[in-house]
Each structure stands twice: as structure tokens, then as C-alpha cells.
């Protein structure tokens, strides 16, 4: 992690949803991680593995069943509401479908200006000036600020969502699949906007995506999720080139490569189990292709450091490290 110091810490964060008949859906299960100032942490995994829920938990849009979230030394779950209101704008979420999160009856100027008014920026003229500045930063024409969300394309709406988040002057942006519904040429535009803004404002970001290629481009570190858990976490290049968890290896081998040789695909058998019936022991063991040890079916492996700053939750990855 960068020497900049920790901005946000999540400790044992868990979210269980009730799923009828005294059963629970384990959307996020005991996740601990840290984000440094200015750092981008990529969060990758297949649909339903808990990425969005974890993003919302870290952004305080969802209340954890268990666990702690600390921002800059403050325990966010145990402070008075008025203090929390002060801190909240420092964490901003950007969603996959900006359309769903933009009020269709408000103009872009009103949408982007709202957080400014809350921040008690005074005077219509000053707010307008700031809105135009923000729109310029995300590559939108300020003269279009009187228009409504439906008058913009998908890529432009994502820019609006980013401008609105920026209006709060956040320190951490949680971007949940911000380019998933965009064509690759528009995706490239949005990635460029995000990259430029992050560099300019030294923003920390959690970049959530099902696409590990995109994640590998924008992140310094990558966390891989499977069935509600982080199963691997480490420096981006180490996770990509020297994955320690068998799930990460399968995920990487499944990505169709452009402009380089395709590694032999490791096809995982079957489907991802239901988060209502998480397998006992290692939650990956029902699909694991390694020669398993007894513990795989009995004990849940914790995240262990298997190389410098590189963690994996696999009994075998641990024993390998112990050997050397």
C-alpha cells in the first residue's frame, strides 16, 4: 500500500439478508480491507458474489449485519447522526446505470447543483458557475446544463453521474460497474475521465467490475470476490501474473485475450452455489479443481499473506507458503 496512509478501513464487514424460513442469504461475509488515500482498489468477481452490496456497505448506503467501517480514524457506525452527516459526502458512489439514479424531472444543472446547495454554497450564480466547471471537468458541454437526463446518451449520463459525485468533493469514490453497460469506445472515454480526475484530485477509488481486464488497467491492488468473500487480494500485477487462489486462476484463464496467446482455459464445473446455501468448509471447494486436502471440506480458509502484500484464502496456498 502507498505510504500515503489509510483512508478507509473495513473490518469483518458482513451483510446477511433474511431469506425466509429462518434462512439467511450471505451476500457479504466477513470482509476486511483497507484503502489508502489516492489508491484505486479493484473489486472483481462474477454476478451475485456481493460486489454491489460491499460497495454500498462501504459507502454507508447499506447497514452491515456485523463489522466496522473506519474513515480516517473515525468509527462511522458509532458516531452521532450529525457527525455522520458531515462525513458522508466524503464517500460517493457512482452506479452502473446512471439513468436509474438521476431524477428524470430535474435538469442537469439541478442534479449536479443539489449537493452544492446542501453544502450551503450561496447564490444562484455561484452554484451555476461551479456546475459548469464540474461539467467541463467530465467533458460535457456546459451549455447543455438546462437539459434533462433522457436527452443524453449512456456515456454522457455516466459523465453526469461522475460530475454529481464530484460536486461533493469526495475523498473516496466507489464506482459500481461504471462502464458495464457501455460500448467499448465509450467505456474507454469514461475510463479516461475517471483516470484524469483521480490524478487531479488525488482521489481514492474502489472500482467494482465483473471485467478483470478493465480492473487490471485502473487498479493498483485487486480484490477477487467469490460467494460473498474476498478470496484473493494483492498488488494488481501480482494477482494477474501470479494468482494464488484457484478461483482467480480459473477466472483469468477464462478471459478471451486480445493480442496475446490464450492460456489453456480451466473450466470450472457447474454453477456458482446459492449464497443461501454456502458450502461448508472452503466455499469454493465444490468447484475446485485442485487436489483437495481434508480441511477443504471442513474449515473455511482465511485470507493469509502468501507473498508480500498478497493474500489468498485457500488452504493449499497457505501450505505452499509454509513450505518455502
Amino acid at each position: 500500500m502507498s505510504s500515503d496512509g489509510v483512508l478507509l478501513t473495513a473490518a469483518h464487514v458482513t451483510k446477511h439478508f433474511p431469506a425466509g424460513k429462518r434462512r439467511v442469504l450471505r451476500a457479504v461475509d466477513d470482509v476486511s480491507l483497507e484503502i489508502a488515500r489516492g489508491e484505486t482498489l479493484g473489486l472483481v468477481g462474477e454476478s451475485g458474489c456481493g460486489k454491489t452490496t460491499l460497495g454500498k456497505l462501504l459507502c454507508l448506503l447499506e447497514e452491515p449485519t456485523r463489522g466496522e467501517i473506519w474513515l480516517d480514524g473515525t468509527d462511522l457506525l458509532h458516531i452521532p447522526p450529525n457527525e455522520l452527516r458531515e462525513l458522508r459526502p466524503r464517500l460517493q458512489m457512482i452506479f452502473q446505470d446512471p439513468f436509474a439514479s438521476l431524477n428524470p424531472h430535474k435538469t442537469i444543472e439541478q442534479i449536479v447543483g443539489l449537493p452544492l446547495r446542501i453544502k450551503s454554497l450561496r447564490g444562484k450564480a455561484r452554484i451555476r458557475e461551479r456546475v459548469h466547471e464540474l461539467l467541463g471537468m467530465v467533458g460535457l458541454d456546459p451549455s447543455q446544463s438546462g437539459r434533462f437526463p433522457h436527452q443524453f446518451s449512456g456515456g454522457q449520463r455516466q459523465r453526469i453521474g461522475i460530475a454529481r459525485a464530484l460536486a461533493c468533493e469526495p475523498e473516496l469514490i466507489i464506482a459500481d460497474e461504471p462502464v458495464a453497460s457501455l460500448d467499448v469506445s465509450i467505456q474507454a472515454q469514461i475510463l479516461q475521465v475517471l483516470r484524469d480526475l483521480q490524478a487531479r484530485f488525488h482521489l481514492a477509488a474502489i472500482f467494482i467490475s465483473h471485467d478483470i481486464s478493465v480492473v487490471s488497467h485502473v487498479s493498483q491492488r485487486i480484490a477477487v470476490m467469490y460467494l460473498g468473500r474476498v478470496v484473493e487480494l494483492g498488488p494488481a500485477q501480482d494477482v494477474i501474473y501470479d494468482p494464488k487462489h484457484p478461483y482467480t486462476r480459473a477466472l483469468l484463464s477464462a478471459v478471451p485475450r486480445v493480442g496475446e496467446a490464450q492460456p489453456e482455459a480451466t473450466l470450472l464445473p457447474g454453477d456458482i452455489p446459492s449464497p443461501i446455501a454456502v458450502p461448508r468448509g472452503c466455499r469454493f471447494h465444490t468447484r475446485c479443481y485442485l487436489e483437495q486436502v481434508t480441511e477443504c471440506g471442513t474449515g473455511e480458509p482465511g485470507l493469509r499473506e502468501v507473498a508480500n502484500g498478497h493474500f489468498a484464502a485457500c488452504h493449499l496456498a497457505r501450505s505452499k507458503a509454509a513450505e518455502s
Partner: peptide, 21 residues
């Protein structure tokens, strides 16, 4: 289009957008 595609584990190969729509 090929320059827009993020290459896995190759942040050194830059992503260059096609401007416009």
C-alpha cells in the same frame, strides 16, 4: 476499436478512446 480494449494485466498498453459517438 482495438486501442479501446483494455488488455488484461497490461496497463502499459494505454486505452485510447475514439472521440464522439
Amino acid at each position: 476499436l482495438l486501442r479501446c480494449v483494455p488488455r488484461l494485466g497490461r496497463p502499459d498498453v494505454p486505452i485510447t478512446p475514439i472521440e464522439g459517438t
